[in-house]
Nucleic acid binder design. Structure first.
Lengths: 241, 241
DNA sequence: GATAGTTACAAGTCTAGACATCAAGCTTCC
DNA sequence: GGAAGCTTGATGTCTAGACTTGTAACTATC
């Protein structure tokens, strides 16, 4: 423990991690030690411990009943409230995700994109078209668009991985909000060819618009998922307050 | 103990409401007063104020930058991280939602349902089949199933509204977590007839499993949405920690 | 035996303050 | 003139304690 060199991570986050590991080994509905005891165990004040417990609660790993105590929740719905990304989905199913870049260029956006991203006339966007594969089987045809102004050097970077990650590490932009519209349709000829399915097969159309912490609209993505091989999973949590 | 409940709402929730109203009138990126001033304005301590600010932050209405201040976020993505229900979706689009109950009965669950709800042999479920309509146009065919043990009197209540609401008000069960799987398919004959579309039209298949705060599996719902009239909207927020 | 009151305990709320860290402007010194 | 350091002001983290409210078990009374 003494190796903590200038502990950069706050205590409540460290405790959060330790709680996660601790709870992973416990049966559902097990009563945890009371807050004051846990606080003493971790050598912090009760309020700091409660910050960590709050994180565990919003992650759905514990629940607490006033006057009784804090308990381990059943782990059926374990993911947080964020959408599962393509990469996460594939890895959760034991598949290896890959991407094949079809095109990457700077274009004048169509009206739909200009509207969704609230772009003025004359502004351009980067458009990146990729095929997403799982174990080398095409799953999804994805068209990503972002205003060139936010991240002018985007196309100079490798585009086979997570573009969100590029925004975070190289662009200093953290995408925190995303809104999606999902509908069902039949595959068009060109889409069907790229996805390796027959035309008029059922597909999922996903239109996504994302913004950063400040509410600035960062990107819009249109995706076509094949309906025979892909299902879209998401979990949500209603606020307990 | 009848009418004199006097449920005192905590200060941080009251302040949260006042902040919501206050922010609604402000331009994006406006600098808010500093935390100590706000705390004084509301006559609470800084930590209590920060609880309210935290709620505003997770609701996406404000953002704060260490060393600079707290600002009003742009309101483009305003919804929280919860899934939009059918009723909410329809009302947001200016349509009137209704339900038509096709059947409501107690049955022995099939293997899929028994598996998803982790039911032992011999347990029965209530099955409620409904058509959800918007302005009297069929949108969705919904099959709801819940173990009879949680809420034995469910079928005695009116089933045209929100069943979650019945669980909350009459069953004393608050459904907080829900996990969904969405895929695309083609409508089968019987489904197409009920939905008023041609067979082999594109539809969205949604399989939902929900649980309460303790992680107990409460319900499973299979829904068939028509792809030509319905799109499935959802918004998510990544945790800013 | 049922019911109402008492008590212990645990989480929930709230406070006043201390220190840490980051951003930005200002001063000083080379 | 410019870089380095200082100062100010803001959010971020943390503490010890007091008070509030809900739960459950126990007890006394009817």
């Amino acid at each position: 423990m003494g190796t903590e060199r200038r502990t950069r991570t706050p205590k409540y986050l460290q405790i959060n991690d330790q709680l996660t590991a601790m709870i992973a080994d416990m049966e559902p509905d097990t009563l945890l030690p009371k807050e004051l005891e846990l606080a003493e165990t971790f050598s912090v004040s009760r309020e700091t411990l409660r910050q960590a417990l709050q994180l565990q609660t919003s992650a759905g790993r514990i629940y607490s009943i006033k006057g009784k105590g804090t308990f381990v929740a059943r782990p059926h719905i374990s993911k947080g409230d964020k959408l599962t990304s393509f990469t996460e989905d594939m890895e959760a199913r034991g598949l290896t995700p890959r991407s094949r870049v079809i095109s990457a260029r700077e274009i004048t956006p169509d009206t739909d994109t200009a509207h969704d991203l609230e772009l003025d006339d004359g502004r351009t966007v980067f458009e990146i078209v990729r095929i997403r594969l799982a174990d080398d089987v095409p799953m999804c045809l994805e068209t990503f668009q972002t205003p060139t102004s936010f991240f002018p050097t985007l196309l100079e970077l490798p585009l086979t991985g997570s573009i969100y990650e590029l925004f975070r590490t190289h662009g200093r932009i953290s995408i925190t909000n995303t809104e999606q519209r999902i509908t069902a349709a039949l595959a068009k000829k060109a889409q069907a060819d790229l996805l390796g399915v027959r035309p008029r097969s059922p597909v999922l159309l996903v239109n996504r618009v994302s913004s950063d912490q400040r509410g600035r609209l960062i990107e819009r993505t249109e995706s076509v998922y094949r309906g025979d091989r892909y299902d879209f999973r998401l979990s949500a949590r209603r606020d307990g307050r």
